[in-house]
Nucleic acid binder design. Structure first.
Length: 141
DNA sequence: GCCAACGTTGGC
DNA sequence: GCCAACGTTGGC
């Protein structure tokens, strides 16, 4: 079981749209970065990820779960690009903003801070637990 | 809307 | 294989 963080501009694909898909989930297509794709290849069904709104909001708004194996990106014929599907798990009661993360010394090594532009990134277990706590979840998702 | 950071592409 | 040019991301 590993933890991740995925970014989306709410203009293009928002948390509300993700939740509306429910159990069916949604392919995380459109990733055109090798490191991000490699992270998706390392995912297993049942892994959890934070859903982060970039650009607008700049906050962690929800928790999703990997619900498919890696498969070709349906949006392109280029065989290099693959993706997994995510389904919504729960809201973050108090969204954790980028400013919150930067203000917390224990999160200084989080990829969100150190690899700002990476759109699919790993999250360490202690980081995961702390962000859950900051977000107002009683116990980590 | 600007611009810095950074990844990718392509010429040599 | 280097590196300049270019495109994209994402914070501000």
């Amino acid at each position: 079981m590993q933890y991740w963080l995925i970014k989306s501009e709410p203009d293009k694909w928002s948390w509300e749209q993700q939740k509306a898909k429910g159990e069916e989930g949604e392919p995380w297509d459109g990733i055109r970065n090798y490191q991000a794709r490699n992270n998706m290849r390392a995912m297993e069904i049942g892994d959890k990820a934070f859903f982060y709104h970039s650009n607008i909001g700049k906050e962690v708004v929800g928790v999703v779960e990997v619900c498919s194996e890696i498969h070709p990106d349906p949006k392109t014929d280029d065989p290099r690009w693959e993706c997994v599907d995510f389904k919504a798990v729960c809201d973050i009661p108090k969204p954790v903003t980028l400013a919150d993360v930067k203000a917390e010394p224990r999160l200084a090594d989080m990829s969100l801070v150190t690899s700002m532009r990476l759109s699919v990134q790993p999250v360490k277990e202690d980081e995961w637990n702390l962000v859950c706590e900051m977000g107002g979840l009683d116990k980590p998702a």
